[in-house]
């Protein structure tokens, strides 16, 4: 078998296997609201060792960019719109985040806990 054929086959298997498992799983959904350039709740607790979906609703009339090096996520949320981020599976701990446009007021943390939130 030629190398090019092997690469195509390997890449296809990798792509397919990477997409399949998570589609079937049920992902828990959590919500954050941005209002007056403040995230609410400022502390969000999510379960450890599982992937979750966080929907961030921006009720302000300006855009904001959710940014977290700890969570390895960066996402723009337009004014009056919602955006979804997927985080985890994560080990227990405290993960900081902030809004890039209003870093003094738009701050919060995600607590990853083994106890069910």
């Amino acid at each position: 078998m030629q190398w090019t054929t092997r690469i195509v086959i390997a890449a296809s298997i990798t792509l397919a296997s990477g997409l399949m498992p998570v589609i079937a799983e049920e992902t828990k959904v959590f919500a954050l609201v941005l209002k007056n350039h403040t995230f609410m709740p400022a502390t969000l607790t999510i379960p450890a060792n599982e992937k979750v979906k966080i929907i961030i609703e921006n009720k302000d009339d300006t855009a904001e960019e959710f940014d977290s090096f700890d969570l390895n996520r960066e996402r723009v949320i337009f004014a009056g719109k919602s955006a979804t981020i997927y985080v985890g599976p994560l080990p227990p701990g405290t993960y900081e985040y902030f809004g890039e446009y209003h870093p003094n007021s738009a701050r919060g943390q995600v607590i990853v806990s083994e106890e069910r939130p």
């Binding site: 190398w3 090019t4 092997r6 990798t14």
Partner: peptide, 16 residues
């Protein structure tokens, strides 16, 4: 399966 296919991908590409 995912990691096996990734390793195969890396090995394949090292020769191209």
């Amino acid at each position: 399966l995912k990691w096996s296919s990734i390793i195969l991908l890396v090995i394949s590409c090292q020769s191209l």
